[in-house]
Structures are given as structure tokens and as C-alpha cells.
Design a binder for these strands. Structure first.
Lengths: 229, 229
DNA sequence: CTTCAAGTACAACGCACGTTGCACAAAATG
DNA sequence: CATTTTGTGCAACGTGCGTTGTACTTGAAG
């Protein structure tokens, strides 16, 4: 009953294989990048099933045949797209965490500032989060290997970076926490969970003031639970 | 570029038309109910595109031809399914709100109790919320009329009922609020937003203790903003 | 220039799916 | 009973899509 449909295996057959096999550097054309970018937009807009390979190729300015040469499979393309996108977003988020949590002078003020920036959606990553919503909605049809690679390169990497910061901040006496990983998960949920959920329901962009209000409230709840008393 | 794909119009062509035209009461077989229930399960599991009409018919124990006789269209079926399901869930939620917010003796204790019950997911409605996630993910491909009917019969109806309760409770001196509708939206988000978001990310069911903790925290934030000082 | 990998255009195959028409059974209605 | 409504099984049509093979172009490397 699940055999038909679903995103099938072809994980990383030829993916990035060319770059490794040939000594070619990625300068000219760079069809692979075009493909990853165009596919992200197409998958985000239409979802996996609806986004046809031909439409993706058109959006990326390549031939559909090139997709199969690079990724072997539609599923392989999807795998590469979400992992690549998740890695990029995670990189940006980690940099953001480093900037705001690297040096703590006033734990409450710094966390409030961090929360506001964190909760404010970056337009250049809108497609990514739309795609993530697609993945969550049809998680049952996404190969476990793809889910695993996405989580590992994206959310889990970010959470580990945040946890390291929180651990360090706690050791410096600004917080009181036992499980830094759990605390990191709680922090991002409290800061951006509500506004994320809310923007879904209304499908409208939130006002910055509303984002800041929910983020501030989340930080205060976090400090209520993890602050030094 | 958007012309192909998408859920097309056929909203309520023949939907529920038979019941209205003929004086027939819905007793025997009641294929329509079977269809609505089976379709809910199928759409929730596979999403709109992947769920084939034949598979739905099989899941509902009917013929695929009967689907077209009743709903005219696959899109019409989807429309009927989500509206019907949303109405049922909303009914249950409104009853729940009446029970817990009808008579207030201790505003904090009552809201805490209400929040815990509200945030605890009912297994019989799991399919519905899975379907809602599908709808949100591909909202761009769902006809506006379907989105509108769903919101009206489901979320908005619930929010209005909650707002009425909050208004009454405020008039009785237990709360201080200007916009009851906004307060209702805030309450459900604070109470269930986090746990809903969190259960998505992990795809695992939350422990009751965790649900209660986040719900309690949400209620306290709500009272911090809307409580009488 | 020759060579070779990378990309493209095109045609084709097979398949699954939405949808319809039609003939026929079953059940309710009078 | 006869009649009308509902539901079913089946065949069929058209279409869109994933995928592959193949011949051709292009541009860099030797």
C-alpha cells in the first residue's frame, strides 16, 4: 500500500561524484549549483510530486537530462537539494549564534537581542523553510536516509552549536542548566516556535513588533526556567 | 506555470446535492460518510496529489465511480473532506471550551486545566491535523474557496467561541482584555503552539509531562499579559 | 588540432492517474 | 408489483510524467 508513490531510494549515486572523479574545478557553467538553486525554488513552490523534472530543468536553465546525469534520480536530486539548503541555512544560523552568544555581558539583554534576530525570518531563506514544511507534511514518503541527512546537516548541527554556547555561558555563571542540548531546543522553540506557527495559520507575514513581542516573552520564559536564581 | 497541477475548482457541484434534492434520509449504506472518512485517512497519509481516486475508493469500501457521483471531482471531494473534518474537530473543541471556561472559580487554575486538556492531542483527530499540515504545505495549490470554507467552519468558529468565553470572563472581572478575538488567538498559540511545533520536528509523540509544562508556561504568559493586575 | 568530458535536443517507452460512458445489480419508493 | 434512485464493474481515452538511449554540440585540456 506504500509501495507505489513515495520518494524512492537513489540517494547519492552520482551526486557530487563528477566533482570527485574528474579533477575539474567548479568554475564554468556550474550547472550543479544552478540545479540545486532552481530545484529548491521549484520543490518549495510545488512540492515533490507536483514539481516535474522538466519544469525543474526549465527553472534551472538546464536540460532535464543533466539532472539525471548529476543526481541519477528525482529522489537523488531532492536529497541533494534539501541537504544542501539545510547546510546553508544552518551555516547562517550558526554564524548568527556566534555573533550574539559569543560574548555575554548582560544575559537578559543579550538573549532578548538574540531572540529577536533569530525569530525574524530572512527572506533569502524563505524557500528553504517552505520546503521544510513540505518535507514535514509528507515525511512518511521521504526516504529515512534523506530525513536523517537533512536533520544532521541542518537542525541538529545548529542545536549542537547553540548547546555549546549555552554550556559555556552556564559555566560562566550566567545560566543554570543540566542538559545543554535540551535547553538549546527549548530556547529556539520559545523564541521562534510561536511566531513560526502563527505565520503558518494566517499565511501572512507578521509585524516585526509582534515577532519581537513573542520572542521577548519566550526569552523570559526561558530565563524563568534556566536563569540563575 | 501554475496552470498545470493545483487543486482545481469543482467545489460543491454535486456535493450534498443528493441529500437536498431527494427527501432521502441518510440511513442505509451511507456511502457518503464512508467516503468522507476513508478520504480523510487517505489524504492525510498521502497528500492530495499522491492519494489516487482509486485508492481512496478502496479505502472507503466503495467504487471510484461513486466518488464522482457524489462529489463530481477529486477537488470537490477534497473540499468536502476538509470542511467536514474541520467542522467535527471544531465541534469537539467548542464543547471542550464550554466545559472548562463556562464557569470560572479560580482563573489561573481553570486556565491551567483548560490548557492541559487543550494541548493534549486527541488520537481520533490525528488524521485531521495531519491533513491540515498537508493543506498548509501546499496552500498555494488549494483553491481559495476551499481554504476559506475550511477556516470558516473550523479555526475561525473555534476562535469566536473562545473569544466569547474570554469576553464574558473579562466582564466578570477575571481578565483584562481589549480585543477578545486576539486574546483567543494568543491563548491557543501559547497553550498548544509550542508542543504542536515540537511534535512536528521530532515526529515523535510528546510526553504528557512535557505537554503540561509547555502549556502551563503558555498560560502563565497569557495571564501575564491579560490578567487583572 | 585532437580528444574527451559535459551539456543538450529529441524521441520514445511504460505507467499511473483523472475522468467518463455504459450496462447492470440492488435497494428503496410508490 | 413496477419504478426510480444509488451504487458497481469495466473498459476506454487522454495526458502528464519519470526515465533512458542516442546522436549532436560545445568548450576546455593535452
Amino acid at each position: 500500500m506504500d509501495s507505489q508513490g513515495g520518494i524512492r531510494t537513489g540517494v547519492a549515486d552520482a551526486a557530487s561524484g563528477r566533482a570527485a572523479r574528474t579533477g575539474r574545478s567548479w568554475r564554468a557553467g556550474d550547472k550543479r549549483r544552478d540545479l540545486l538553486d532552481g530545484s529548491l525554488a521549484a520543490f518549495a513552490r510545488d512540492g515533490y510530486t507536483r514539481a516535474s523534472v522538466d519544469a525543474i530543468a526549465r527553472a534551472a536553465g538546464t536540460s532535464s537530462r543533466t539532472i539525471y546525469n548529476h543526481f541519477g534520480d528525482k529522489a537523488g536530486l531532492f536529497h541533494a537539494v534539501i541537504v544542501d539548503s539545510a547546510r546553508r541555512v544552518a551555516d547562517a544560523q550558526i554564524i548568527l549564534a556566534d555573533r550574539h552568544l559569543g560574548k555575554i555581558v548582560d544575559i537578559e539583554a543579550d538573549l532578548l537581542e538574540f531572540g529577536r534576530v533569530w525569530a525574524t525570518p530572512a527572506p533569502e531563506f524563505a524557500d528553504h523553510f517552505t520546503l521544510v514544511r513540505q518535507v514535514i507534511a509528507e515525511a512518511a514518503h521521504v526516504p529515512p536516509a534523506t530525513l536523517e541527512a537533512w536533520q544532521e546537516q541542518g537542525p541538529r548541527r545548529v542545536r549542537r552549536a547553540l548547546a555549546a554556547h549555552l554550556r559555556r555561558i552556564a559555566d560562566a555563571g550566567h545560566l543554570s542548566l543540566a542538559d545543554a542540548d535540551l535547553a538549546a531546543a527549548h530556547l529556539v522553540l520559545l523564541v521562534a516556535g510561536d511566531s513560526g506557527q502563527r505565520s503558518l495559520h494566517g499565511a501572512v507575514a507578521l509585524e516585526p513588533a509582534e515577532i519581537h513581542a513573542t520572542s521577548d516573552a519566550g526569552v523570559r520564559v526561558f530565563l524563568h526556567g534556566y536563569g540563575v536564581r
